[in-house]
Design a protein around this nucleic acid. Structure first.
Ligand SMILES: [Mn+2]
Ligand SMILES: [Mn+2]
Ligand SMILES: [Zn+2]
Ligand SMILES: [Zn+2]
Lengths: 135, 135
DNA sequence: CAAGAACCTTAGAACCATTCTAAGTTATTG
DNA sequence: CAATAACTTAGAATGGTTCTAAGGTTCTTG
């Protein structure tokens, strides 16, 4: 270890996942920079160009595992395709419908008041605000 | 016309669509009662049991046409499947993740304050609030 | 009321994102 | 080092949706 990149081996193990070369490669692409929104296809295209290419099946498996482990959150804004979000904190999204781009905005700038009580027998899971815009 | 059911012929024509038997049958199922949330499959299952069954292809075509004409609104809450909503006014949704149910709530009970400005070069299209709950 | 033109419906094929299968590989543990 | 459990992967399968192309319906015009 050269000492200047986060140790994904540790975080993967902490998440109950073996730090395989493929998972470490994907973790690097996903978490090394700032927050990101990727699709399986876009992530696959990116990782294919690295010294550790990963099959599309593994990209799907890994995105689902990372999501289940709480390392990613899944965002559904458009029919037929899922986005995965490296920002797992509280925040909301702009969705640019004309080109499929997602942008974060912090949820503490926004006040949502007067939400009705959840239907009988249900408990709150999450509140998503999606601001749809077009160019 | 017996006089007690809305004249879908007129509203379809007003929307620029020929009032075919299939479209009238679907309009009846969709708009005759209160507001509804359907999927293509659920609507197809329903209309199959009527005196005017309609093919699945036509159900898809019609849902898309009704949406484009502003008679329906499409709601995307879960990967892999679209809901169509007969309530085209301002409102938001509870989504019961454990069983795929959608419920409306009026948007005028809710206050959303402090939304950031849309990204440069975009204009607001719609704000969706999805309250995800589980049983 | 024709009759033509435009539009619509439909079965089945195609499509595309995602998941599954099953065979080989790798990481972990002792 | 095994031995074992976990992982990766190509390719097949799945499932929702769209497309194709052939036949049917609705509309317009005379
Ligand atoms: Mn999934
Ligand atoms: Mn559509
Ligand atoms: Zn985000
Ligand atoms: Zn609704």
């Amino acid at each position: 270890m050269t000492g200047n990149s986060p140790d994904f081996t540790v975080s993967l193990r902490a998440a109950g996942l073996r730090p395989t070369r493929q998972r470490v490669a994907l973790a690097r692409v996903l978490f090394e920079g700032g927050h990101r929104h990727v699709t399986a296809e876009s992530l696959h295209a990116e990782v294919k160009a690295t010294p550790m290419p990963v099959s599309l099946a593994t990209v799907y498996n890994t995105l689902n595992q990372f999501r289940d482990a709480g390392l990613l959150r899944e965002v559904v804004v458009a029919p037929g395709r899922s986005y995965f979000d490296t920002n797992t904190g509280h925040h909301h999204h702009f969705f640019v419908e004309t080109d499929g781009e997602l942008h974060d905005f912090p949820s503490d700038e926004v006040t949502i008041a007067g939400l009705p009580a959840p239907p009988e027998g249900t408990r709150l899971s999450r509140v998503d605000v999606i601001v749809r815009v077009r160019r």
